[in-house]
């Protein structure tokens, strides 16, 4: 009995899309589509303008020089930084020697 009712339900479910009406898109779809097209064109235009500007020989050369200068500045600052570290290390050693010597002198006292 239940088997028959399940089969009936299955058939009814399969037929449940019969007579369905078409769902309708929200109003002003065209406005949104045109806005999407325009924004796409604007983005494309912006990128085209940027690539045209960047491909100019003067701009490309200036960019290359700028990159070289930045690299040189980084290398120069690193060398200077190493010198500072070396100075710091030597002063640290001196400080460590002094501290040890103080303890040593304190321990030597009766």
């Amino acid at each position: 009995m239940q088997k028959r009712s399940i089969e009936k339900l299955v058939e009814e479910t399969l037929d449940s899309l019969e007579g369905a009406k078409r769902a309708e898109a929200k109003p002003f779809l065209l406005t949104r589509v045109l806005a999407k097209i325009n924004s796409g064109e604007e983005t494309a235009n912006a990128w085209t303008r940027i690539s045209v500007f960047l491909s100019k020989p003067a701009v490309a050369l200036a960019g290359l020089l700028l990159i070289i200068l930045i690299n040189a500045a980084i290398i120069f600052s690193n060398t200077k930084g190493n010198e500072n570290i070396q100075n710091m290390n030597s002063s640290k050693d001196e400080f460590a020697v002094n501290v040890l010597s103080i303890y040593e002198s304190e321990n030597q006292e009766p």
Binding site: T13, L14, D15, S16, A20
Partner: peptide
């Protein structure tokens, strides 16, 4: 729930869409 489905079929259609 598809908005175009007939009222009597709504429940069954929901099951069918899930399937």
């Amino acid at each position: 729930n598809h908005p175009g489905i007939l009222l009597d079929n709504k429940e069954n259609a929901t099951v069918l869409f899930k399937a």
